[in-house]
Every structure is written in structure tokens, then in C-alpha cells.
Amino acid sequence: MSESLRIVVVAPDLDIADEDPQALQQAERSRALRIGLLENGYNLVAVLPADPFLTERLAQLHPDLVIVDAESEARDALEHVVMATREAPRPIVLFTNDSDTSQVRHAVAAGVTAYIVAGLEAARIRPILDVALARFEHEQALRAELDSARTELRERKTIERAKGLLMQRQGLSEPEAYARLRKTAMDKGLRLHEVAQRMLDVIDLLA
């Protein structure tokens, strides 16, 4: 699967113009991450900065997973990535050497799938990404199930309201009102809740 998995790394520019030890350390870490991805057979399609253009770039590249490689600016980078993936959710994995874990709760709440501190050994990259993908797919399935349940509840309420109006205005019993809605839906090739909603819309207009 790794051969076809398209990965984008969001990281600061590696062109270090000075001898700042922290910047040099982060540059080395970023290089190690990219080498580790390539050694594990992943398709590293791009390395992008966390800037206002990230949304457009991710939309063009369609990655399967986004890795954030950040240190002190991790929160800013995460905000850019989360905003960029809001319309098209993707697994987000944060690699950092920053031992300050105060941002973990914020990161997970924002949509980060895995928050990895000091876990950049090449041998760990594959299991970390595999777990992140599995967790993301599980969460997406749960969200889809929840959305489906909410939609079903809304549709049921619409049908119940339409049945109630038919019973009140035309003196029908509940089974008769339901049968009327169901027959109309079958005749018009519509779903039951669509017929109910159209009926409610007409009644609201005439009210």
C-alpha cells in the first residue's frame, strides 16, 4: 500500500542561512524524516511550507496523508494544515521533538490523527503511519454513521409532522396518512421524506 500512498510533508524551509543550533537540528530532523519516508517506499509528492497558500496546493496534489514536521511553530503550522484539510479531511500526523505536550489536546481536537514526540527512527515510521491511517478510517466511518443517524432522525421527524397534518386536516388515521404519503412517493418516484417535505413546504407557503 505504501507505494501508492501519496504523502505531503508540511515543514519549514531547510535552507539555513545561519548557524542557529535549533534551526540546524530541525533541518537535520526534516531531512531524516524525508529519507525515512523514501526508505519505507512511500510516495513523497511534495514538501510545502505552512502558509496561506497551503489549501490550494493540497487541493491540487490530493495527498492521502499529511505530515506536519514542526517545532516551536507547531501550533501555527497545525492551524494552516487543519484549515487546508477542512473541506477534504485527510489523516494528519505531527512529528516533533518538542517535549512540551501542552498542545496535544488542542492538536487532537483540531483533527490531528497522531502526535509523535521524538519518534523519527526510520523503523517506526511505517507502523506510525499505518496506525494513523487505520484510526482516521475508523473515525471517518464513525462520523459517517453519526451523520446517517442524524439524517434518518430528521427525515423521520419530517414524515411524522406531515402525517400529523394529514390526520388533522383530512381526518385520516395514522395508517391512512402514512399510506397516502407512501402512495404519493411511489407514484412520483420520490423518497417518502421528500414527499413529506414538499407537502410541508406547500402548507407553509399557504399559511
Rank of each mutant, 00 (worst) to 15 (best):
E137C: 07
I128T: 06
A46I: 05
T151Q: 14
I159P: 10
Q170R: 07
S72P: 00
S72N: 14
A50D: 15
A149R: 15
A134Q: 13
L61G: 03
L192N: 08
G111K: 07
A162K: 09
Y115M: 05
R90N: 01
L38F: 03
E39M: 09
L190Y: 04
I125K: 01
V47W: 01
I116P: 02
I203H: 08
T55F: 07
L14W: 06
F95R: 04
H62F: 02
G41C: 08
Q22Y: 09
S148D: 13
E28G: 15
H80A: 13
L153Q: 15
G119E: 07
L5M: 11
V45A: 04
V68W: 11
T113E: 03
E174Q: 14
P63A: 08
V82I: 15
T158M: 12
E28M: 09
E19Y: 07
V45D: 01
I7Y: 00
M1N: 09
T158S: 14
M167D: 10
E121L: 11
L129C: 05
T113D: 02
A59F: 00
D100L: 13
L44V: 15
M1D: 11
A196Q: 06
P63Y: 02
A46P: 08
I159C: 12
D51F: 06
R126L: 03
L172W: 10
R86I: 04
P52W: 10
V82N: 04
H80W: 01
P91D: 01
R75T: 13
R86L: 12
I203K: 03
Y178Q: 14
A118E: 13
N40R: 13
M167S: 12
S4V: 09
L133D: 03
H106N: 08
R75E: 14
E176N: 09
Y42E: 04
Q26W: 10
R6S: 14
R150K: 12
N43A: 11
